[in-house]
Nucleic acid binder design. Structure first.
Lengths: 166, 166
DNA sequence: ACGAAAAGGTTGACATCTCCACCTTTGTCC
DNA sequence: GGACAAAGGTGGAGATGTCAACCTTTTCGT
């Protein structure tokens, strides 16, 4: 039993980690986050989620909490805490939302707008830096590929051996 | 000054979040991690970093701590703590490394091998599930694209307005 | 062979993320 | 219109990740 197991494992010895898609994406994501933190650390003391929220608002997509939250992909709990931090640090003021009393509206202060003006060009340059690292063909297909993977990552219904086997 | 800022921001209102590469990759990575956790939660109580370490060892790449650590991309601190947890939970035993006394060798117990046998097929199925979500052309270039981006994410030397401007 | 520098690992402090339980407000369905 | 589910938000607990200081071992220059 254990011998078979060890044999199986030994046979897989040649397998290549670089072919594990989620693993490679995770490492890439971690590096990108570190790069973003490095950019932020040069100027402001904004955290990454703070910056993401400010950017969404500054881009004028919406001022409603739910829409901002969903745009950023941050979960409810962390969003709430991050907004609190932004308010305490003077980047954002909140106003009760008239249309939906559960939500709030977020309004950037001058401090946040100044930070956005300073950081936005750097993040734009970084985006360019990343895009030119790709071939034109890669640039074409990278966004659809990400989207397709994101959809495929939503379920685990591809597993046919359910918990009953445990 | 503030008026110009608001104008600039308003002009950018049409900009599309879906074109922000790091942002999309982050969201994808988060979803993939959640999917992996969902798979792990069905069977074992292994955490994601624990599973990654076990997998690297089980695949026979190496038993040396440094090589395992670098393969997983986990940083020194977290690796140390995760290995301790694996030892305490009986998945791994450690042996002093003869060639380099700073390192240790990690050896999987039967418990870890059993967990690997159980989980590996599910993660293989998941990998397939992800790959078939891509077109053949996307499959061809997704890995080179990830690699190129990972390299481009290593530096921030593309910024020409250094700290002196603060 | 010696000392300095680099690499590996450990630990603690701290930030971030995830999960869950809970409360309030909206929406829905008889 | 009133009960009940659904959506939004808050707060706490615990897991996970990051960063820096520190010690030991190895490597490298001279």
């Amino acid at each position: 039993m254990r011998d078979d197991a060890e044999k199986e494992i030994a046979e897989g010895a040649g397998f290549d980690l670089s072919l594990l898609l989620p693993f490679q994406i995770t490492k890439l994501s971690n590096r990108l986050a570190a790069q973003a933190r490095a950019i932020l650390a040069r100027h402001d003391n904004l955290s990454l989620p703070q910056w993401r929220i400010i950017r969404v608002i500054a881009m004028g997509l919406s001022n409603r909490s739910t829409e901002i939250r969903k745009s950023t992909g941050i979960d409810k709990s962390q969003f709430s805490k991050t907004v609190n931090a932004l308010v305490e640090e003077g980047y954002v003021v909140t106003v009760p939302c008239q249309e939906d009393h559960r939500q709030i509206e977020l309004i950037l202060t001058g401090k946040a707008i100044a930070a956005y003006e300073l950081l936005a060009p750097e993040f734009a340059a970084r985006q360019q830096h990343l895009l030119v690292a790709l071939t034109p063909a890669q640039r074409e297909m990278i966004f659809p590929a990400i989207h397709a993977l994101a959809r495929a990552a939503e379920t685990i219904d591809f597993i046919d051996t359910p918990t009953s086997e445990d």
